[in-house]
Design a protein around this nucleic acid. Structure first.
Lengths: 197, 197
DNA sequence: GTCTATAACCCGATAGAC
DNA sequence: GTCTATCGGGTTATAGAC
């Protein structure tokens, strides 16, 4: 790993552990083992380094989620998989948490990669939900955008509850609640179709 | 408003606007118009001031939510009301956001009021859900803890999505998704009971 | 591309007069 | 209870040699 990559890695880790404001270039330097001059050779300053770290986090996390949703097979099962993935609830989401860092949220440049990541997930999720509706797995009375936002919000909000409680249970409960609710309406949809026959 | 209250108010505002780490005692002093000496007379330091601000935020926000959920009347309508309240999604939640501030989340003292606030909401919400199940408004196949966590997570996660998108729509979509999903399973429950007759 | 040295400023906190 | 003055240290960033 070269100096540049080590700096980005250290910045990413520290922003996760301490947040943007509380992370100093000196700590980044010390953790990455890169000298002062090198750091300002590769990046104009803390801000540019943070942007690189955020872009890297998004690039790291997005593909796995996209793969999960884009895979072939039963749409509802893919949503279930999205809602069942392994996480570390008490550590928070490397991407989602950034929206709650005021210095990031108020900075259009830093927020851009986060916005794009969530927009992509939303788009994919809406597609899967539309597939499920087309296949009759879900009733057509539900709005795909609403459902997609609700599902992603459940995960992101689950982090909030888990950290507040210092217990991963609320995170798992929230996601299970969403899965079970979806399953219940899916059964309704099946039932409705039987009755119409 | 006396010096102490003005300091707490200013700290609360600044923590919301900038976060804990990025808020300096000097800014608090300047915004509140209180002198240096006064500040350190009332509070031992930034940490103690932050605790007072967090406690105040929780005390300010909790009663309205509790009142909403504790009111008499149709349980499902109360959940609907909880999911329909006015918010400022782009500004974030004064309480929930604190869980994503690493310096707050890693400090048991600062996190305590946040933990208690969410625990209280959860408790109230579980009661309302149990009422709804007892009345047959919801089927008994759903777990009240899961549902309660999902509902609060939807709201908290909605903030994340709204800030990421810099648009309040995802917040409203997520909450509407949860309401419509609940309504759909409620109709299922009614249908099931009719069939059993 | 990396190093050391240093600038200029702000941080959180304290001292002590009034 | 409030004021001004100040401390020691850390902050982000720059300068300039190698």
């Amino acid at each position: 790993m070269d100096s540049r990559a080590r700096l980005v890695q250290a910045m990413s880790d520290l922003m996760w552990e301490r947040g943007y404001a509380a992370t100093s270039p000196r700590e980044v330097r010390e953790r990455s083992g890169v000298g002062q001059g090198s750091m300002y050779h590769h990046f104009a300053g803390k801000h540019e380094l943070a942007l690189a770290a955020l872009e890297r986090n998004c690039a790291d996390l997005l593909p796995a989620t996209e793969a999960l949703l884009a895979s072939t097979g039963d749409p509802l099962a893919r949503i279930d998989a999205y809602l069942s993935r392994e996480h570390q609830p008490l550590k928070g989401c490397k991407v989602g948490r950034m929206t709650q860092d005021p210095l990031v949220a108020s900075d259009p440049v830093l927020l851009a990669p986060v916005r794009e990541a969530f927009a992509t997930i939303h788009e994919r999720l809406v597609s899967v939900i539309k597939e499920a509706i087309a296949l009759g797995e879900l009733g057509d009375g539900l709005d795909p955008d609403e459902l997609a936002s609700m599902i992603t919000a459940t995960i992101q909000g689950g982090y909030v509850l888990a950290i507040a409680a210092q217990d991963s249970r609320p995170f798992d409960e929230a996601r299970a609640g969403a899965r079970h609710l979806l399953r219940a309406v899916a059964l309704c949809a099946v039932q409705d179709r039987k009755e119409q026959k």
